[in-house]
Amino acid sequence: MSEIFASLATELRRGTLTLAVLSQLEIPRYGYSLVQRLEKSGISIDQSTLYPLLRRLEKQKLVTSSWDTSESRPRKYYVLSSYGKQVSAQLKAEWQKTSLELQKLLEGDRGNESY
């Protein structure tokens, strides 16, 4: 039972991760700073998922990357490309629409139960 729940919950969260990451890349960030930011707002993401995800987004031309070597250790910074900004905005709108619809659906359900 709890195993089924865990796998369903993971599935539910998986699609939202991309949006969560894109939303934080308005300004350049490196991998670990992104992890910390997301964790602070309560979104836990496996680092073994996040780092590959960043590279995938780069390959899809949604973000661009650059190495910063001015500090003691080199860091790779990612930031939204202009194409990425467009897609991110669309995704955000899509998410808001979906969550609104789902909320209505779930509350309607509760209304039926109390009927």
Partner: peptide, 14 residues
Amino acid sequence: DDIALELHSSIQDM
């Protein structure tokens, strides 16, 4: 090489 460098710096960040 690129991933090795990035992974290295990410781990050290942690």
